[in-house]
Design a protein around this nucleic acid. Structure first.
Length: 291
DNA sequence: CATGTTTCCTGACAGC
DNA sequence: TGCTGTCAGGAAACAT
């Protein structure tokens, strides 16, 4: 399931393939509304735009378009895609048959197609309208993220400082696992990387966030960043059917210490990995290494 | 507001 | 073989 490293991999792959390309035609299925923006309105907003850049914000994929003064005067937009659980963005030649559950197709000037495929339809996409950007030419208030326009709900885990990280969690009266999954706090950590980070920080998932010591929070901060960076380097984790824009699988699943390793020996101490449900999610941890 | 619970959706897989 | 039932899980909607 796509979390920050997978989304980053997909966004980079799509960017490399469609940057500078022009959207000649857009189509979206009108199945039980997988979109925040109605399909027809979204197609209209995208048609004729030239893709300037594709990038990741939290678990969202953001499409920026090259300035088009006349259209922008009416409304400047970005296209936001969330892959949900099984969503895939794939660049393909039109003669390659569209797989089942294809819910969106952008026909590009290069002749290729950008396709959105999503079996479970937990994915979401929509048009993000930027506010009056023309009047105020891009004040770079978000220099760290370097991003005008769409912002995720929470803080970027790769950029957050130790102090900020402590502050985010130290008053939370909920399990640290639930807090890590809360996207309005940290934006991008999902079930896999929450479990893997907690293992590396040697913290049990059910511990209440507010009861963690400063050292533990600092350890967790380091673990989250390390795990995410390493996963990005390996192209993400391919557990169910995740693939990048070229259809390639990632390799971080080979480095998992606990996720989906229930009953198997801990790679550090040999104790069997335990699985419980926390915050409604399957949660994996080592009962010996984690306290 | 903060936190917990339910819902959406379908492929995969267990059990008969 | 083929059917039925259960489960997974991100995030929004709803409930407490």
């Amino acid at each position: 399931m796509p979390e920050l490293p997978e989304v980053e991999t997909v966004a980079n792959g799509v960017d490399a393939r469609v940057r500078g390309d022009r959207i000649e035609e857009a189509w979206f299925s009108s199945k039980p509304e997988p979109m925040k923006t109605p399909p027809a309105a979204m197609a209209k907003a995208l048609t004729g735009r030239t893709i300037e850049r594709v990038r990741r914000v939290g678990k969202h994929i953001v499409f920026d378009f090259t300035p088009a003064p006349e259209r922008d005067a009416v409304q400047r937009v970005q296209w936001i895609v969330h892959l949900g659980m099984t969503g895939r963005l794939v660049v393909a030649d039109p003669d390659v048959p569209r797989p089942p559950h294809t819910h969106g197709v952008l026909r590009l000037r290069s002749g290729r197609e950008l396709r959105f495929i999503d079996a479970r339809r937990f994915g979401r996409m929509g048009i993000h309208v930027l506010e009056k950007v023309l009047d105020k030419p891009e004040k770079p208030k978000d220099e760290a993220a370097g991003i005008p326009g769409f912002k995720g709900p929470g803080t970027e885990p790769l950029h957050i400082s130790k102090a900020e990280f402590r502050q985010l969690f130290h008053l939370r009266r909920t399990s640290i696992k639930a807090a890590l999954l809360n996207q309005s706090l940290l934006h991008g950590v999902g079930n896999i990387y929450a479990d893997e980070s907690l293992f590396r920080a040697k913290i049990r998932p059910r511990r209440m966030a507010a009861r963690l010591t400063t050292e533990e929070l600092d350890r967790l901060h380091g673990a989250v960043q390390k795990v995410l960076r390493e996963a990005i380097r390996l192209g993400g984790s391919s557990v169910s059917d995740y693939v990048d824009a070229a259809g390639e699988r990632g390799f971080f699943q080979l480095r998992h210490n606990v996720y989906m390793r229930t009953g198997q020996p801990c790679l550090v101490c040999g104790a069997p990995i335990r699985r419980v449900v926390v915050a409604g999610r399957g949660t994996h941890y080592c009962p010996v290494c984690q306290h």
